[in-house]
């Protein structure tokens, strides 16, 4: 069976379109973590509720925010998770009249690095503290 010309042309069109245009829907270079080869350090992203790791979406009605969602001082491939967390927290804030929730929330990072001995895990850095309620 001969290779269908339509498939070849569509392949070339999408490949070249993506290479030239980049992120122009529906084209994409699917870069994501493609530039990760330059890194020697990184950072995990963690949400703690009363000191224990939890899914952020198990919490709601956030209040008494202290700090920010600023990116860690080291590059991480989890920027999308930070952005999603920012949108979730700011989109689920408690009303001004409501008292702070009972759950103590810490959002932050743990630094990691790759050395000759392999992966090294460093200090935890809390960038945002707040209060929240557990979802019913």
């Amino acid at each position: 069976m001969a290779t269908p010309r339509a498939a070849v042309l569509a392949f070339l069109l999408y490949y070249l379109g993506s290479a030239l245009l980049g992120e122009a829907f529906p084209f994409s270079r699917f870069s994501m973590y493609a530039g990760a080869g330059r890194r020697t350090e990184g950072a995990t992203f963690a949400v703690l509720a009363d000191g224990k790791p939890v899914r952020l979406r198990s919490l709601t009605r956030f209040s008494a925010l202290e700090g920010s969602f600023e990116d860690p001082k080291r590059p991480t491939s989890l920027g999308h998770a930070v952005e999603e967390a920012r949108g979730y927290v700011l989109g689920h804030r408690a009303s001004d009249a409501e008292p702070p929730g009972p759950v103590r929330v810490e959002i932050g990072y743990r630094r990691i690095a790759w050395t000759d001995e392999g992966l090294q895990v460093g200090d935890e850095v809390t960038s945002l503290r707040c209060r929240a309620w557990n979802k019913p």
Partner: peptide, 19 residues
């Protein structure tokens, strides 16, 4: 099918181009 194949190929290109 051509587009699907190109999506995988461009993903490889991005990794080699950037890293």
């Amino acid at each position: 099918c051509g587009v699907a194949g190109a999506i995988y190929a461009i993903s490889a290109y991005s990794k080699l181009d950037q890293s």
